[in-house]
Amino acid sequence: MKSAPFTYCRPASVTEACALLAADEDARLIAGGQTLVPMMAMRLARPTALIDIARIPELAFVRREGDHIEIGAATRQAFAEANATVALDLPLLARALPWIGHSAIRNRGTIGGSIANADPAAEIPLVLATLGGAVVVQTPRGRERFAARDFFLGPMTTAIPADGCLVEAHFPVWTHQRIGACFTEISARHGDFAYVSAAAQVALDDNGSCVACALGVGGATAQPTQLAVDLTGARINETTAREKLSVAIETLDMMTDPHASPAYRKRAALALALRALLAARDEALAKRART
C-alpha cells in the first residue's frame, strides 16, 4: 500500500493551481486527502503530480453573502462543524457534518473535497442538493457557477472540467422564523458511508402550516437526490407525507451493491425521509410562533 511515484507541489493561489492542472493531464488536486490518499495507497488512483490546495488562504472561509452562505472549498469539515454561522444559518449542514466518518477524518477532510469527490453516499453533497445550492468552479478560462442539480452527474462524477478547481459552495439560507432540520442515515456501523441517508428542512408559519420544505435522499441513488415533494400550504401529517414520499421514492432508480439491495434502499429511503421530515417538523413546531 505505497502509492505509485508522484511529484508534489503547493501553489500559492487558485490561478496557479489551475495552470498546473492544465499543464499535466495526469495531475490531481489534493485537499484533505481523506479519499485520495487511500485510493493512491491502493494504487486505484495514480496521479503523476499532486497539487496541494489545502493551504491556499483564499479557499478557506465561511461567509454570509446575501441569501446564502459561501464556504471556501478548502475549509475543513471540522471547521465548518464548529462554525457559529453554519450552526445558526445552515442547520441542515450543521446536522449533517457529524455523520461524516469520524472526527479525525473531518479534521482533515474539506468541504470542497467531499463535493468534488461526489460519493453518492456523502453527506455534504446531499445537503447541497437538498437545499438547491450551487458551486463555483475556476478554470484558466475563468469562474463558472453550477446549480447542484447540474453538477452531480453520477457516482464520483461531476461537471468539473479537467483543469477546474472547485472554489466555493453556496448553501441557501432560510430566513423563516420557525425552521427545523434533520439529517439521518443508516449504515452498518457508526461512521461508515451510509447505505441510505435522508435530509429534511422545513419552515412553518405561525399556524404550523408548512411554508417551505426541502427533502433529499443520498446513498440510494447514483447522485444525491432532491425529492420532488411539495408539502407547503398545510400542516405536515404523517399519512399524507408518507404517501407523497412513497410516490417520489418509487420512481427513483436505486443503486445495488453487495451490502444493500435496491429493495432495501427503497425501504430505508422512505423510512428515513419520513423520520427526517417529521423530526424537522417537530423541531420547527417547538420554536415559538410570533405572538
Binding site: Y195, A260, S261, A263, R267
Partner: peptide, 10 residues
C-alpha cells in the same frame, strides 16, 4: 446483516 434482517422482515 442489518440489510438482511430488514429484507426478511419486509
Amino acid at each position: 446483516r442489518t440489510t438482511a434482517i430488514s429484507d426478511a422482515i419486509a
